[in-house]
Amino acid sequence: MHETVWGLAAGARLHWREWEGEVVLFHENSANIHQLSPVAVTALRLLMDEPATNATLVQKTASCLDIDVDAPLQDDIDQLLSQLRRLGIIQAVQP
């Protein structure tokens, strides 16, 4: 499972608004709106740049935000990826 490479779902259209550090994400395909934490915003932005596995996304997010790779961050990213998958925002892609 953790070898899966995740990327943006085919045809996904995402729009953002940011006020005072708070980010709202609009997923045009499903017309759903979500509020994202700074970690989630960073991880999703990284994923939009380049597909990644759970492990590489944890690494990249940590270095991007200059924080430590620890168990809570790994849990957050695992949870985020599974939520984004269920929402149809990301999908497994060929490495």
Partner: peptide, 12 residues
């Protein structure tokens, strides 16, 4: 809207 929804549901 209908077109968007259907295109989305087709994928789901």
């Amino acid at each position: 809207q209908q077109k968007r929804v259907i295109e989305w549901e087709i994928g789901r």
